[in-house]
Design a protein around this nucleic acid. Structure first.
Lengths: 386, 386
DNA sequence: ATCAATTATTCTCGTAGTAAGAAAAATATC
DNA sequence: GATATTTTTCTTACTACGAGAATAATTGAT
């Protein structure tokens, strides 16, 4: 429990408040975060010297007294870049310090470890050039689909086949900006907390689906990793005893019913026409294809059963569903609600809101941005969110 | 994130180390806890002045150099008292500061709020008199079966029918020693962490059964309460869709299959002979009553399914089962193992040990002692573990 | 225009905690 | 008895927070 950690914590909390409520006063920050006004003042000064935060004169609303200073994240003061490494794609987002994406792009990727550093370095250069902004690149956040140690070594990334890769050091040596790395699911949850539907919610459960299903437990204002780092890997919750086989080797995993490949396979098996993307699945559901709708409804039931367990255990105020799930909301929600009705504890589920977040659909790859922003605004953060 | 909190945290960590490993040196404490040696020295001095810790000269094992000072919890330095309020009983334990119980007793209780303060005050006096020790009563911990606010108000205790009772203030005004109160399940988990099988385990899931089923999530070295305080109320995890009705009004709860009344009812229904206590259930199982063994096996299967969900979500190093479950281990464990095999993720369950803790059977009512001890050694703790 | 009232921010100072290293204490070996 | 070794304590420097005084900027009344 180091002291510098308190500063780090306070700095992040203050930046967070300014981001989600531009033009707040120091006074408001102090009362809302519980941090002392003099500490707020000192941290704001630090941010101000670094050029991360600007003070706007705000018209006093005909009230007596010194008018407040409106604090905003400097929109011109630099860039942060989020990088998301997936099995077949690398996604890039350049964003201002307020987290608002300026430009983004995705690049095909063969998954090979050799050459990835150069590839990413070039990718970052290109996207930084593309948005043509003055100001340094203040931080790069790299979101990877696997388990990291506190030292920034990627222990194992099944979908990439990587093992023991020192991600942070590897990229840090090739990039000028500070590098922050983290697990993809946990980074996405962080993004949801910073920019999305979970802003300011101190306890929520996050689930996302895509080529796999991942998640995170956001507890007491932070992501819970557990002793092994595997806590919150919600894609492999068992939902059907002796159910379908999953790519992980076990059977009955949530991922085996909800991931894009799982849905596509099942739809292909039933209709003889294998969808080539999640969008195609949604298109066919919209067009009224009963088989597709049935598969999605079944996936919703399975998802609902997983959510019910989570509700019974955590009684969270919020469960947030992201990734592909968001666009499938109309086809999933009824089954989810039915399952909750049937399986979740009534007095608990009334306190829980289940939402489908559009964030990852509207602007994907924000996980890396969240990692970088958290690192940059922490005023000397550790470089890993394992 | 106040500074005094760091002191509190460090003090507890140091005391904890001395308790679980008597005769450690300051040096060892520093290396094992990561706290700086000068801080350890300062905190030990504080404890020493308060008379809570004593320094023993320890023979140097024929090694050169200054021999270490062995630190031990002063066994003579005072008492702490744990009080556990249940539906029909109030349990008392007086213990030394090392947590070792000196004497304990239980008292019938009609569950009525009026007069409970006097009753408990008398009970505490009697048990303190009984163990006839010099030294003050340094703290009283009160474990109650319900949800508390941070201010020590018991919001609701279903089994007692109490609502909005300011437990801490109420007892504090009648007792001379500082009063600490907390939820029974969470206090029991704390006891397990301090005295039982979970000593020093930073992440574990605790479940206990008795007249109801309760539990706690011990995460990152502390109990997780969640936004509402209901997190970790594991007795009402749903394990059987549309299953048996539970006293809470919902159906399919773990509690409806594993609590003593639930087991007794089911056994009574099948055999026509209603057991009057959990001991009788165990006796009949030992005597080879197939119906009883079958009921316990079924309960084990249901329990195993609940544990599987928990394993899949938390991947905890340890799941600890206490209360009545401990004595039923031979009849529950096989079914639990089968369920884990079938429902838990293989790569996760290999990292999880499931243990039946004897602590609550051998010396019950330790929850209150844990609350008091945590409060006393925190050097100025808050008075509630909600 | 000036002064009081009011409100926001900054500064000052006291207290606490941490880190690193020097000093002191206690013992064994040569 | 001197020296090496190990444990504990003390010293110093540094960083952070917290409470209240001081300062700054504004409105409204005189």
């Amino acid at each position: 429990m180091k002291k510098s950690f308190i500063r780090h914590f306070n700095a992040n909390a203050i930046f967070h408040r300014i981001r989600i409520e531009p033009n707040v006063s120091q006074r408001d920050i102090a009362t809302k975060t519980g941090i002392d006004k003099s500490v707020v003042s000192s941290i704001i000064n630090q941010f101000s010297e670094l050029g991360l935060v600007e003070r706007n004169p705000v018209a006093s609303g005909n009230k007596p007294g010194r008018p407040m200073e409106g604090l905003v994240i400097s929109p011109e003061s630099g860039l942060i870049v989020g990088v998301q490494i997936e099995a077949d794609t690398i996604g890039y987002v350049a964003a201002a310090l307020d987290g608002i994406p300026l430009c983004s792009r995705a690049q095909a990727f063969d998954g090979k470890l050799g050459g990835v550093v150069d590839l990413v370095a070039r990718g970052i250069n290109e996207i930084v050039g593309e948005c043509a902004r003055k100001g340094d690149t203040l931080g790069v956040g790299i979101s990877v689909p696997g388990l990291l140690t506190d030292e920034g070594v990627l222990l194992h990334a099944p979908v990439l086949g990587w093992r023991g890769v020192p991600v942070v050091d590897m990229f840090a040596s090739a990039l000028e900006a500070p590098v922050f790395a983290g697990n993809d699911g946990k980074a996405a949850a962080m993004a949801e907390y910073m920019f999305g539907e979970c802003v300011d919610v101190k306890d929520f459960i996050y689930l996302f689906s895509g080529s796999g299903v991942g998640g995170a437990l956001f507890l007491d204002g932070d992501i819970y990793r557990g002793a092994t780092g595997l806590a919150g890997e919600l894609g492999h919750i068992k939902v059907v005893p002796q159910g379908r086989y999953c790519s992980c080797g076990a059977s009955g995993c949530l991922s085996a019913y909800l991931s894009e490949p799982a849905l596509a396979d099942e739809i292909g098996r039933l209709t003889g026409k294998l969808p080539s993307s999640f969008n195609e699945i949604i298109e066919r559901a919209r067009a009224g294809d009963e088989a597709v709708i049935g598969v999605l409804d079944n996936a919703g039931a399975v998802l609902g059963s997983a959510i019910s367990s989570l509700v019974n255990i955590f009684n969270p105020p919020l469960v947030c569903l992201g990734g592909d799930m968001a666009s499938a909301e109309p086809y999933l929600r009824p089954a989810v609600e039915r399952a909750l009705q049937r399986l979740a504890h009534p007095s608990m589920s009334v306190q829980t809101k289940v939402i489908f977040s559009q964030l990852s659909t509207v602007s994907p790859f924000l996980g890396g941005v969240a990692l970088a922003l958290d690192g940059v605004t922490g005023l000397d953060s550790p470089h890993v969110l394992p």
